[in-house]
Design a protein around this nucleic acid. Structure first.
Lengths: 219, 219
DNA sequence: CATAGTTTCATACATCTGTTTGAATTGCAA
DNA sequence: TTGCAATTCAAACAGATGTATGAAACTATG
């Protein structure tokens, strides 16, 4: 039995390589070299390169969604089914940021792999990725419960912007670090989370009661 | 002379294909087929595939930066060297959003190409891309003039978030459209610009006077 | 120990990639 | 028209890539 040593070694090596260098220039031979297994092992255990990628993605995708929903549920239960909006947003962007930022050795390859996925959009994944919509809808619902006065359109935009900020921060934390010459500490993960969440909260609540408040300000 | 018909045809075809399908799976043969020229033409006119990509990127990058700075200058001149913050941000994200959104036939392939670049980070481009930092610094300076009370760190984060929202909106407007079942109209470009700008303005001004206002709210 | 099933391995295969080559064609000046 | 340089073209090249094959090695069960 041996717990599928080879299979596991391939999965680990592939995820690390994809996370580091992207899908474009990681070959099967790179993977098997890193995993120290035979070239044919990938096709034997997974069928094809695409199926290997798909399995990685499905696994990580489910794990990320599970973690998000776990945090959301905890927040909603603490508030009798209605979580404060910042808690909802924290459950949405927290897992991604926690995994993707921090000192190099602290970042999970899993999270960086997921970022790659969200960036490069390789064919075997594009098909699976539609399920993400259903997952996000659950957060829209939680946001609606939290902010009954806000229109759906604004909720969608708020969620969209929150994810945008979280993603871009993980994807290109290097540019921000360079631009700010180290003044923006992207390794202080909890601070980053609070920044993203607070901006998203403002976006959602600014024009909640009176509407048009901040919007007209920006005209 | 013939104004380099072949050269131009290649550039046009390559930009369109890269914008549509990304760098990963667009081959030289795809490009020459779309441009209706001989396979060897790319190497004859550009030297290599990488140099073709680099030329496209440099051209578009300069054009985008020029347009941003033009809008910034116009705004600052209108205000005696100090533009309101929303005008600065509009100059930053406007050109990108205007080119990358709107009905299909209105989107410039140039803008979509630039989005691809910002996503996929192919080697020949990664080297050139450092100049972007210098360009962004000019906007940080303008933001500092506009909001003298805001700390540099907050300015950097504000710029970062503004670009994040703009980019993600162009990159994945499809997901937002699907999620909202068409309720979020990403084709209304000016509305999108105002949304992005207004959120970024809030992020920058919320804790400007008293500090900690919104941050503590989100705790 | 023998045997059946699983897994590993070296190797080969077909295809696709960017690039090169050298001849053919074109455009234009003398 | 002639001659020369610039451009186009078909063809080939070398290298890399994902996959397939069939023999070898291993594992565990009877």
């Amino acid at each position: 039995m041996a717990t599928d040593q080879t299979r596991t070694a391939i999965l680990v090596a592939a995820e690390r390589l994809y996370a580091e260098r992207g899908f474009a220039d990681v070959t099967l031979r790179d993977i098997v070299a890193a995993a120290d297994v035979n070239l044919a092992a990938v096709n034997y255990h997974f069928g094809s390169k695409d199926e290997l990628i798909a399995e990685l993605f499905v696994t990580r995708s489910l794990a990320l969604n599970r973690e998000r929903l776990r945090e959301l549920k905890a927040a909603e239960e603490a508030g009798d089914g209605r979580a404060p909006i910042d808690a909802v947003l924290r459950a949405l962007v927290g897992p991604t940021l926690r995994g993707g930022l921090g000192p190099d050795n602290a970042r999970s390859t899993a999270a960086r792999f997921m970022i790659r996925v969200s960036i490069e959009s390789v064919p075997p994944i594009r098909r699976i990725r539609n399920r993400e919509i259903d997952h996000l809808r659950k957060f829209v619902a939680a946001m609606r419960r939290s902010l009954p006065g806000v229109s759906d359109v604004d909720l969608y935009w708020g969620l969209h912007f929150a994810l945008a900020m979280a993603h871009q921060t993980v994807r290109d934390s290097e540019r921000l670090a360079k631009l700010s010459e180290g003044q923006c500490d992207v390794d202080d993960v909890e601070d980053v989370i609070e920044r993203v969440v607070s901006v998203a909260v403002m976006a959602l609540t600014a024009n909640a009661p009176g509407k048009m408040a901040a919007r007209s300000l920006a005209r």
